[in-house]
Amino acid sequence: MPGERLGLPEVALSPDRHFTCIGLGIAMTERFHERAPPSGAGPEPWCSRPAGSGDRMVGLALRACAALPVILSLSLLGILAEGAWDGAGKLGIPEGGLWPRVLGTLLVSGVALAVAVPLGLLAALFLSELARPAVRRWLKPALELLAGIPTVVYALLAVLVAGPALARVVPGLEVPSALVAGLVLALMLVPTISSLSEDALRAVPRELREAALALGASRLRMLWLVVVPAARPGIVAAVMLAVSRAVGETMIMTYAAGHVPRTGLDPRVAVETLTGYMGGVALGQEPGTSASVFTVGAAVLGLNVLAHAVVLRLGRRSGRWS
């Protein structure tokens, strides 16, 4: 129903489901608390004062706060799992199927990561190891600023400026297309990767570097054979974050990747991604039911988890310093 607001209930979840989520969340959080080391009279072994009523109130409030994220993730899973079924008890598959959209997501985020990961890692190496302090002092904030630019603005840049400019260079490029979306997405991901990887590189102990240099390694070899492998877990975490941002990015995908569900691997034409579908339905540009949007949402989450597993696996292999 184009033009109509999304969210008119087809099947509203019964309220007791939400209460179940809340109860389960609190119970799970409290379970973790019970497993905390046994305390003596006070809340801390070395705290001599007995807890007053104010302390108890605050403690209760803080425990409620700690339970909140658990409740939230349970609700997220529950809502996605249950919203995906329509009134007739069928899984809400969007028109054109789920598979082309999954492929579209993989294609766009593949393009983005293929550009952003090498650039981000080189940038991290430069900022943490090679740059003079004066250069670093202004280049690092400038790069970090890119990560904070709203994605709406990136979408505007992709459609209005970057797309037409690229179309002049690349033959046969459509303007909403996987390539345009991927390249603009890469601009957003580079600072994400570089700032986390840089922290990991800077945390590598000085002794390791000294040992490598003392053994006669050049600076390049020291970086490549000692510092980068030692920082591998942090780098993997950075790439993981970038993957989940790429898969879940909505505004760029909605406007710059197009709305043509397609299974080809040609990045020059318009495709449709999972998040692009959600955005399209929300904007009323595409037919869709609430069940199909929730199904696609569940697919986004599933893809996210899968991508994390793959990145973790790739990162673990041939770990030199583990």
Partner: peptide, 9 residues
């Protein structure tokens, strides 16, 4: 790390 659209849902 969960995509923000999902929080929209």
């Amino acid at each position: 790390g969960v995509p923000s659209v999902l929080f929209g849902l």
